[in-house]
């Protein structure tokens, strides 16, 4: 055997010794992409993260969280708030108008009284 042939053979043997025994299967598996079995393993790995009594904990947590108000309830609440605000505005406005009217009437009454005093004096 020629020395270069011997060297090539040694090189090939060394290189092939670097490969793991299941090299061909691994290459085929990787080339095909993840198999259904691997996806099932992933699902099982995720499922193992759930502690025992998971369903009971979910039901308990769901009972403790206050309910989300329905659209109708939210609308009714908004309408009630708007009505209260409107009543407050109308109430304050009418109060102010009444006070202003009273003040004006008192002013006119004062004027009438002054005129009557003046007529009597004249």
């Amino acid at each position: 055997m020629k020395p270069e042939d011997h060297a090539w053979r040694s090189l090939r043997e060394h290189a092939s010794a670097q490969l793991r025994p299941d090299f061909a299967n691994r290459v085929v598996r990787l080339a095909q992409g993840p198999q259904d079995e691997t996806w099932r393993e992933l699902e099982a790995a995720g499922a193992r993260r759930l502690r025992a009594g998971f369903a009971e904990r979910v039901l308990r947590a769901a009972r403790q969280i206050p309910g989300v108000p329905s659209f109708l309830n939210q609308f009714a609440f908004s309408a009630a708030t708007a009505a209260i605000c409107m009543l407050a505005v109308v109430g304050i406005h009418s109060l102010q108008v009444r006070l202003e009217s009273d003040r004006n009437l008192a002013g006119w009454q004062q004027l009438v009284d002054d005129m009557q005093d003046l007529e009597q004096y004249l």
């Binding site: 996806w39 699902e43 790995a45 995720g46 499922a47 993260r49 998971f54 947590a61």
Partner: peptide
């Protein structure tokens, strides 16, 4: 629960999120 846990694990890649997100 197992299928949802697997789905959450595939989505997040984090085992510590699985229970919380599944809940």
């Amino acid at each position: 629960q197992h299928r949802v846990a697997g789905f959450v694990y595939a989505m997040t890649g984090r085992g510590d999120y699985v229970e919380d997100l599944a809940q």
